[in-house]
């Protein structure tokens, strides 16, 4: 069996508690030319931290997600999870249970015929005792606001509810990190807001969040933003600084949403609207 999750307090020589990419390059085996999907990428994510990875389609975002939990292994460089190398086959299950991934399309991640069975599927497969599974299912559904829908059939849920169910399924494995690959891109505004609230709740609970997105409004909610362009990190910093760099964002291929353009127009008219204001509420509050 696997070791229980280690305590966060470790000695100086002990493994660092973080997801760490060190000079990671990845070339898909099927690539016609030797084009790297990721090229010399280094960054880290600590527990309790929310990092947004911003980039257009084709920037290498999804490759980064697959590398983060060992679904694929770097062509060169190193990905470590709490010190464990993802190339180490012996650590594979441990790595995957510590890094939970939620993909874009929730339908592809839902396996069971009722909501609670779907959440129980992961821990059942890991041989978690029955009483403990019940607790995890209840906790996970509560964390994403789906309590009361336990016996629903997943296809009866809205898009936003399905995406939150997919997150609950991952939470039931009690991962230390959540990696989200555009979890809101198929959802309407309300669905997006609900999913993002569930994610923020997990960050406050001490989980590290790596949120891959092309929405600037998502990036505004992160502690740190990494800009990815053609497989390389082109900037990294707090949202207020990154979002102020309009030229940088444009070269990244992520456009300001209309409310961001409105904020920019107001700034040019002398109204002090903060750069991380990416919602109607925050822009109106600055007036």
């Amino acid at each position: 069996m696997h070791d229980p999750p280690r305590a966060f307090a470790v000695g100086e020589d002990g493994p660092q508690h973080m997801i760490e990419f060190s000079d990671v390059t990845y070339v898909y085996p099927s690539a016609e030319r030797d084009v790297a999907a990721l090229d010399g990428v280094s960054f880290s994510l600590a527990p309790g931290e929310h990092v947004a990875v911003l980039g257009a389609n084709g920037s290498g975002k999804s490759t980064l997600v697959r590398l983060a939990n060992g679904l694929i292994r770097p062509t060169s460089g190193l990905v470590t999870i709490d010190g464990d190398d993802t190339r180490d086959v012996g650590a594979m299950w441990d790595v995957r249970s510590r890094v939970g991934v939620v993909f874009q399309n929730a339908d592809n991640q839902i396996v069971a015929t009722t909501v609670e069975e779907d959440v129980a599927f992961g821990p059942e497969n890991l041989g978690v005792p029955v009483g403990e599974i019940r607790r995890r299912v209840d906790d996970s559904l509560a964390a994403v606001g789906l309590t009361g829908l336990e016996s629903r059939e997943p296809h009866q849920l809205s898009g936003g509810q399905k995406q939150r169910l997919a997150i609950a399924g991952v939470l039931a494995l009690e991962p230390a990190y959540l990696v989200l690959d555009e979890p809101t891109s198929m959802l309407d505004l309300q669905g997006r807001a609900d999913v993002l609230a569930a994610v923020e709740h997990q960050r406050r609970a001490g989980r590290g969040i790596l949120h891959v997105t092309h929405h600037l409004a998502d990036a505004a909610a992160a502690d740190r933003v990494i800009g990815l362009e053609a497989g390389r990190i082109v900037f990294e910093g707090p949202p207020g600084v990154v979002l102020a760099d309009e030229d940088g964002l444009e070269s990244l291929g992520v456009a300001l949403p209309p409310v961001g353009r409105l904020a920019a127009e107001l700034r040019s008219r002398g109204v002090a609207v903060p750069y991380e204001a990416m919602s109607a509420e925050s822009v109106a509050a600055a007036l």
Binding site: P258, L266, E281
Partner: peptide, 27 residues
């Protein structure tokens, strides 16, 4: 959002004289 910002602005007592979908005009 652009329309919503205008509605919230009016709620804060800023008179706009009607809503618009144009970002520049709204600003």
């Amino acid at each position: 959002d652009v329309l919503r910002t205008q509605i919230l602005a009016e709620e804060r007592g800023i008179r706009l004289g009607g809503y618009t979908l144009e970002v520049v005009e709204a600003a």
